[in-house]
Write a protein that binds this DNA or RNA. Structure first.
Length: 440
DNA sequence: AATGCGGGGAA
DNA sequence: TTCCCAGCATT
């Protein structure tokens, strides 16, 4: 059989299969370019089943490009809470504003214009142009590369950029005349339902007869893909600070910086416990005594006096490049009492000791450099809630003049603020009374 | 070209 | 548990 025939067999049979086996998905029910766009951004690195409820809620809250463009960023982030890769949400909204300003609120149909939208790269541009506008552009994602590498027995490493370009050329040739919309979705649908990564269902595959990979017995060894580096472990100490006085029933949280990991998300205060040990498999847990001293010290450096009461729980949070191993301590807010200076002295000693061993640059909220315990009393702490109780708190400077925003919140405040899943779980457990035994 | 960036689901 | 999934932005 020749390559031409093999390609024709693939396109014809795949398209026929798709027209019968096409899943009914929320973004496929209307031909709305905005729906296509939102769904494609959500589907980056994320499974269909996970995306569906998020998509429905998102479209319900932001039904048009204009609604999305005009929404407060915090609302958009809250609608993305739990989906991960939060820069997608921020880029999507930035792009919605681009569409309003540059294209009168209509998604552009020009390839360069689509590609210029924030968060839209080669794959997503192709997906929007083909699915929304039926333009014959390839849309090559991981599913497509897996399918093509097997069917055509392509041994190139799919992690390489050059391979993606090669795949795009091939995928473009395969699109049947006038059928880009259905064919591109068919390709991805096959990868998701039949030509799966671990145990492909070759027996029910519509193109198995001429699949070079299967014929060569290579279906399990394709695609060729270099493995990602394992994430590095980080031991972090987390504080659940119970408010007292005016903050009774509330917990201290803070908002992360505008860029980097979990940008602009809210979180419980925490501090890196260890210098990142090179090549060490697991971060060594820190004993409670030094951990509590360090944690109190870091809180003090942030302008808060709190007394750690004891270990509440352990938790782990896995990112693609970092593993947070968390020791969570329940703490109590201390107002200006006589014991404050003593706590501060011990805590400061612990914090300084670590700062010294870590080159004084890795103990702040997230690897930002901290000039610890700068006590100049000029700058005003950004407290969006009542700032009265700890009026004498020391002034601090995180990083290069950055200041994190801290708030005392109750459970009702959580429906306006976006938290990463790990802190969502810890806070829910706390407000549900799970950690009540610590204080006895 | 290499690295940063979340969170699930399946084996 | 362990393994797998992998677009875009930035540098």
């Amino acid at each position: 059989m020749g390559l031409i025939e093999q390609k024709q067999h693939f396109s014809v049979n795949l398209l026929d299969w798709y027209m019968i086996n096409r899943r009914d998905l929320p973004w496929r029910r209307h031909n709305n370019p905005y729906f296509t766009w939102v769904s494609e951004i959500m589907l980056q690195q994320t499974r269909v089943d996970t995306v569906i409820p998020y998509f429905n809620r998102f479209i319900g809250n932001f039904p048009t490009v204009q609604a999305l463009a005009e929404a407060p960023e915090e609302d958009v982030l809250k609608n993305w809470e739990g989906l991960g890769y939060y820069s997608r949400a921020r880029n999507l909204q930035a792009a919605a504003r681009q569409v309003m300003e540059l294209h009168g609120g209509e998604i552009p149909q020009d390839k360069q214009a689509v590609f210029a939208l924030k968060g839209v790269g080669p794959y997503t541009a192709g997906a929007i142009l083909s699915i929304a506008f039926n333009q014959p552009q390839p849309a090559v994602d991981g599913n497509v590369m897996r399918v093509l590498s097997r069917y055509f027995l392509i041994d190139e490493d799919i992690m390489k950029g050059s391979t993606r370009v090669l795949m795009e050329e091939l995928a473009g040739e395969l699109i049947p005349e006038g059928r880009a919309r259905d064919f591109n979705q068919a390709l991805m649908e096959l990868g998701a339902l039949v030509c799966t990564p671990k145990a492909p269902h070759c027996l029910t595959c519509p193109v198995m007869e001429q699949c070079s990979g299967r014929i060569a017995g290579r279906e399990l060894t394709l695609p060729v893909k270099t493995k990602a580096k394992p994430p590095r472990p980080e031991q972090r100490l987390v504080a659940i600070v119970e408010g007292r006085g005016a903050h009774r029933g509330r917990v201290l949280v803070r908002q992360r910086p505008e860029s980097g990991l979990l940008a602009r998300m809210w979180e419980l205060p925490h501090v890196l416990a260890e210098p990142p040990a090179k090549a060490s498999k697991k971060a060594a847990p820190l004993a409670d005594e030094p951990a509590m001293a360090l944690l109190a010290g870091s809180l003090w450096a942030e302008g808060f006096a709190a007394r750690p009461e004891g270990l509440a729980t352990h938790a782990e949070h896995v990112f693609s490049h970092i593993v947070w191993q968390l020791q969570v301590y329940k703490c109590t807010e201390q107002s200006q009492s006589s014991e404050l200076p003593l706590i501060a002295a011990e805590a400061r000693a612990a914090y300084d000791a670590q700062a010294a061993t870590t080159d004084a640059a890795t103990t702040a909220p997230d690897g930002q450099s901290a000039s610890a315990f700068s006590t100049s009393d000029q700058a005003e702490r950004k407290l969006t809630d009542d700032a009265d109780v700890l009026g004498d708190a020391p002034q601090i400077h995180i990083g290069k003049g950055d200041q994190l925003t801290y708030r005392w919140i109750g459970p009702e405040d959580m429906d306006k603020m976006a938290f990463p899943n790990i802190f969502l779980k810890l806070l829910s457990s706390y407000f549900a009374g799970i950690y009540d035994d610590i204080n006895e």
